[in-house]
Design a protein around this nucleic acid. Structure first.
Length: 593
RNA sequence: GGGGGCGUGGUGAAGUCUGGAGUUCACGCCGGCCUGUCAAGCCGGAGGUCGCGGGUUCAAAUCCCGUCGCUCCCGCCA
């Protein structure tokens, strides 16, 4: 139907007779001669329809409209002197048409297929098939495909075996909510869609597959965010006789290959590494954005004898005083007030700001409480220059760290930066300490602790052999060395408060498998959508997912999720609760009235 | 579960704070003119239940209440 792609035509094709097929991206009808910008998957080329050459009836020619699907046969020729278009790769040539067929006309469009305005996203999703004719989406789909291609190259190079694991599995209620699928053959029973292929890939290791990978669809029934959908894709891989170093080595290869593919840039190895403890200490988060410094500085010693009561009080009760140098923010009073409000929203009791004046003095609400010696020490601690804004929070360490970590992003995160700052965050703790002092597992219970005895004796400070890959302040994925010893696995369950009976009933099949010569193994999973969205500079992962869902989990194109026939429910042995049916009836009444 | 933003011809926006005739701009659409444009140009035209419901008022796109949708964030995401 076509002999070459529209976007492939170049000066050296001049003289050739070719057939193109694609869409009318734009038409410039001069009454006589008509120019058509013909777009297909390969690009755009200008087609010239000249009445003297009578390629088709007047009716057809002047009737062409936006996004008509057409086929054109003609001769490639250089454009006349002075009419070349530098903006187009094909701009040196044009197609002189001598035959044109409308393959399929188009109804008037719900929005224009160009980049002139930001269309409401709900409308874009409802007409996603039109949205993806636009260069933005077409480019993102290609980038996603290219990224996956690059990942597969690394996997192939490393002799990884691609294995598909099931997506209808047993629910293990822990961590995120499971997406459930009712079983017809066993009424009242449910499959869960996998949150990750975790246990299956470990079974593959036990099964002698020494290197495995999969582009795995994963499902987590939690609320949406700009970087979170309930359904998403991970590059999941695992290796036997591996520890952390082998995993990070593969990750570095993936990063290099993908960044090269998508941006043509060299990433320098090794990728930076930071411990979880250091990341929290310096940046107040386990996913630091290292495109900028602005490290958190501890000022507790400096304020040991302060006359400022708020600080003194906090320091007297095991608290801490820390701050960041926001640099030359140039904020007016209102902007500083907003920072104070922001800090309070984030959980701080207050925020003290100080601005270094030209004469070396500090402008600050608390300036009158500060001695000369303290002022000098503060400036020294922050390495402050005139114009710098210093932001200081006093509270218990956990609050101070998290507030300053987020304020750091508020004032420091670059807006239109194309810089990439990858970093491995290592040595995560086994447990997170909750506000009430209780412990909750920071990772799934198959993560190997650094030291089992330490885990038992000091669970709140115990380190696990787990690691994250972070890019520009976003977590791209995480992984760990897994437990391969059933005894250690049992101890971990115990410390995590999963009783032996409980563990057997939920994971008995897996504990059984561990008993048969399980090789030491380790692995990782990278969020493909998230990685591509950051590398493409997109603000959310919906731009990278071909058919994403809205924040309420709906698909405006197909109308999912939908209700089903009563008979379907009957066959599944399930019913919808009465209060939900009442809700349906009320909604229908409102719609009718 | 909670907080913020948005909703105005097909699209994008202005108008809303401070109530006074569906007013405006750009693109698109329809018709006419036009043989070298490339966001073609010029002339003319059509097109709106201001998301929906209720309230206040002589009068509501505008103020108030509710609701729906989209979005950003907190919680949540072992």
């Amino acid at each position: 139907m076509k002999t070459i792609g529209a976007g492939e035509l170049r000066a050296q094709n001049a003289g050739e007779t070719v057939t193109l097929a694609g869409w009318v991206a734009r038409r410039r009808d001069h009454g006589g001669v008509i120019f058509i910008d013909l777009r297909d998957a390969s690009g755009i080329v200008q087609v010239v329809l000249n009445p003297d050459e009578a390629p088709a009836s007047e009716e057809v020619l002047h009737g062409l409209r936006s996004e008509y699907c057409i086929q054109v046969t003609g001769t490639v020729r250089p454009r006349p002197e002075g009419t070349a278009n530098q903006e187009l790769p094909t701009g040196a040539v044009e197609l002189a048409a001598h035959g044109l067929v409308v393959l399929s006309p188009s109804a008037p469009l719900p929005f224009q297929i160009d980049e002139r305005v930001d269309i409401d996203e709900g409308l874009r999703l409802q007409y996603r098939y039109l949205d993806m004719r636009r260069t933005r989406m077409a480019g993102n789909l290609r980038a996603r495909s290219a990224a996956i291609g690059a990942m597969r190259r690394v996997m192939d190079r490393g002799d990884f075996l691609e294995v598909e694991t099931p997506t209808l599995i047993a629910s293990t209620p822990e961590g995120a909510r499971d997406m459930l699928v009712p079983s017809r053959l066993r009424p009242g029973h449910f499959y869960a869609l996998p949150q990750s292929p975790q246990l299956f890939k470990q079974l593959l290791m036990i099964g002698g597959v020494e290197r495995y990978y999969q582009l795995a669809k994963c499902y987590r029934d939690e609320d949406f965010r700009a970087d979170r959908q309930i359904e998403f894709t991970q590059l999941d891989f695992e290796g036997s006789f591996w520890g952390q170093d082998e995993v990070l080595d593969v990750l570095e290869q993936i990063v290099v290959e993908v960044v090269q593919e998508l941006r043509g840039e060299e990433i320098e190895l090794p990728i930076a590494r930071i411990s979880y403890a250091d990341a929290m200490e310096k940046y107040g988060t386990d996913k630091p954005d290292l495109r900028f410094g602005m490290e958190i500085v501890d000022l507790s010693d400096l304020f040991a004898d302060t006359e400022f009561k708020a600080f003194a009080g906090v320091l007297g009760s095991q608290g801490t005083v820390r701050g960041i140098n926001g640099g030359a923010l140039g904020l007016a009073r209102s902007g500083l007030d907003r920072l104070v409000e922001r800090a309070q929203e984030l959980g701080a009791r207050g925020l003290v700001w100080m601005i270094v004046q030209e004469d070396g003095s500090l402008r600050s609400p608390v300036a009158k409480f500060l001695s000369e010696r303290e002022i000098a020490a503060i400036k020294g601690a922050f390495d402050a220059s005139p114009g710098d804004t210093l932001l200081i929070v006093a509270d218990e360490a956990k609050v101070v760290t998290s507030v300053l970590g987020q304020l750091r992003l508020t004032v420091g995160q670059p807006e239109d930066s194309d810089e990439l700052a990858f970093v491995f965050v290592l040595d995560f703790p086994v447990f997170d300490v909750n506000d009430d002092g209780s412990l909750s597992p920071a990772h799934h219970p198959f993560t190997a602790p650094a030291d089992v005895d330490e885990l038992a004796s000091n669970p709140e400070t115990a380190i696990s052999q787990s690691y994250d890959l972070v890019l520009n302040g976003s977590e791209l994925g995480s992984g760990s060395v897994r437990i391969h010893d059933p005894e250690i696995q049992a101890k971990v369950f115990e410390v995590m408060n999963i009783g032996a009976e409980d563990a057997r009933s939920r994971f008995g099949w897996f504990l059984e498998a561990l008993r048969y010569g399980t090789p030491p193994h380790a692995g990782f999973a990278i969020g493909v959508d998230r990685m591509v969205s950051i590398l493409r500079g997109e603000p959310n992962i919906r731009e990278i997912i071909p058919f994403p869902k809205t924040q309420t989990g709906a698909d405006p194109l197909t109308g999912s999720p939908g209700r089903v026939e009563e008979d379907q429910l009957f066959q599944l042995g399930i019913d919808v609760r009465p209060e939900v049916r009442i809700g349906w009836a009320e909604a229908e009444e409102d719609a009718g009235a």
